[in-house]
Design a binder for these strands. Structure first.
Length: 457
RNA sequence: GGCGACGUAGCCAAGGGGUCAAAGGCGAGGGUCUGCAAAAUCCUUAUUCGUGGGUUCAAAUCCCACCGUCGCCUCCA
């Protein structure tokens, strides 16, 4: 039985889906005005991986991840470049898919973008207005928090405390500082749409409510995102959605922890971001996945080159084990027996428990160790099969690390031949000279009893 | 100020009343291999879980206090 920590209750709960064997899931995606950074990659990788795990466990998953393509920052950035906000967001959606794909993140079932759902958003706001949860002021429409009695339930806050907090921006037009914008009246040089309240555009929170209800229905199973979205974003989404339908909107709320750099949250506004593009180039996708999954998804995690090198090194241990197994068993194959069942049960036990990936890796590495010390072909074959099977949710690319072909290869082979000739006549000075030369070309030499092999570093 | 999370070996990180003298990874030290290396692999590396009390036959795990770190309360994954 899968258990998930639900932010709403603050506890681990058993997963009980609305429909049998089916999970409807919505993950908050990026605002597309520049390249995504490692912090944005965390929910993308973690929840993609969790989605695959749910599939592995027999669920059919409808996975939705949105793009926010209408927002102040997009408008500002596009005005600066002198292009339309559509052109700008199109560009960064394409860039997002490049990074996500390189990271091994599978495309979602649906990738809605706000501008394709403006009509639905308008209908949504009209509904709220009709039901007395919204009011209009000079072309802006606000949600009336005082009308929704469970406000604060998700973020475990008391509206009274927040009003007393007095850090909330004062906006004369609002009846209550906690009220939030559903629809914004158009300003000059901004994209806008016709609406019953005049020309304008959607507020931020409303898009997720409107798109999820259009694509997944009035209620669905899992809503996920970074824990910085709990308040106000998710609290507001929940309020407006439940105000509209009077039904429970989401069963399970999952929130990932933040990535920090030198103990400070990685974010665009702090300016300490590290692009996924750069990280992929320096460390590779496998190391990045290993890094992101090596700590429990709810905990904060520190980003540094030390952490990344560590992830890279530990990933290599898995690759080495696979190579070792292949060497030992060749194309031997057999049926699985109790051995597989036992290890599979351990893996499932770890991941069923709120997707405990560190525990899962612990199990995997125990098996890796066993693979090195075993000569039992039947067991080795089963280990290999399990590693491949589990890779369905770990999502590593074991092909990536195999050497890339190059025009230099015959040249390298020739040098190795020369070096081995030198070694045979015990001219080690010459042999070491060739080895150093190859090393400076990023070629690593491996001598063994079976001969010399090499690889790119 | 309010709400929440966290503090486990040199570092990262699971565990969350007894099976824990605490999983796994990185690093380090030693061995195997090698002409020497590199790579790989094997072994070793926490009587102890921020501090002080308490509950219990039994606590890293529960309770209280304190110290420290972080997040949210404004855009943010």
């Amino acid at each position: 039985m899968i258990r998930i920590t639900n932010t709403l209750s603050g506890k681990k709960e058993e997963l009980r889906t609305l429909e049998p064997n089916r999970v409807k899931m919505y993950v908050c995606g990026p605002t597309v005005y520049n390249l995504i950074h490692v912090g944005n990659a965390r929910p993308a990788v973690v929840f993609d991986s969790f989605r695959r795990y749910l599939e592995y466990r027999g669920y059919s998953v409808t996975y939705t991840q949105n793009f926010t393509d209408i927002d102040d920052k997009i408008i500002n950035a596009s005005n600066e470049e002198g292009i339309s906000s559509k052109a700008l967001s199109d560009r960064y959606i394409a860039e997002y898919f490049k990074d996500a794909c390189a990271l091994g993140v599978r495309p979602a079932t649906f990738h809605p973008r706000t501008t394709d759902f403006v009509q639905e958003i308008i209908e949504f706001v009209k509904d709220l207005e009709k039901k007395g949860f919204a009011y209009e002021r000079n072309g802006d429409v606000y949600f009336d928090v005082s009308e929704f009695k469970n406000y604060g339930e998700l973020s475990h806050r008391n509206p009274e405390d927040m009003r007393a907090g007095a850090r909330i921006e004062v906006n004369e037009a609002k009846d209550d500082p906690l009220d939030f914008t559903l629809w914004k009246a158009a300003k000059p040089n901004e994209p806008s749409w016709d609406s019953p309240w005049g020309k304008g555009r959607p507020g931020w929170h409303i898009e997720c409510s409107a798109m999820s209800s259009s694509l997944l229905g009035d209620s669905f199973d899992i809503h996920a995102g970074g824990n910085d979205l709990i308040f106000p974003h998710h609290e507001n989404e929940k309020a407006q959605s439940e105000a509209r339908t009077a039904k429970k909107w989401v069963s399970y709320w999952m929130h990932n922890g933040m990535i920090s750099v030198k103990k400070e949250k990685m974010s665009k506004s702090v300016g300490n971001i590290f692009n996924v593009r750069q990280a992929l180039k320096i460390y590779g996708a496998n190391a990045l996945r290993m890094y992101l999954l090596s700590k429990h998804y709810r905990s904060p995690i520190e980003f540094s080159s030390e952490r990344m090198e560590e992830a890279k090194a530990s990933f290599k241990r898995i690759v080495n084990a696979l190579e070792e197994i292949n060497k030992k068993i060749g194309d031997f194959s057999c049926k699985e027996d109790a051995f597989s069942h036992e290890w599979r049960d351990r893996m499932i036990e770890a991941l069923d428990d709120d997707f405990n990936t560190p525990q899962a890796f612990s199990t995997l590495f125990e098996m890796v160790k066993l693979a090195h010390s075993s000569d039992d072909k039947e067991k080795l074959y089963q280990m290999k099969t399990l590693i491949m099977e589990w890779n369905y949710f770990f999502g590593f690319n074991f092909e990536e690390s195999s050497s890339s072909s190059s025009k230099a290869e015959p040249f390298i082979e020739e040098l190795i031949k020369l070096r081995n000739e030198a070694r045979l006549r015990k001219d080690y000075k010459q042999a070491d000279k060739i080895r150093d030369a190859l090393k400076s070309l990023n070629v690593e030499i491996r001598d063994s009893a079976q001969g010399t092999t090499w690889r790119w570093i």
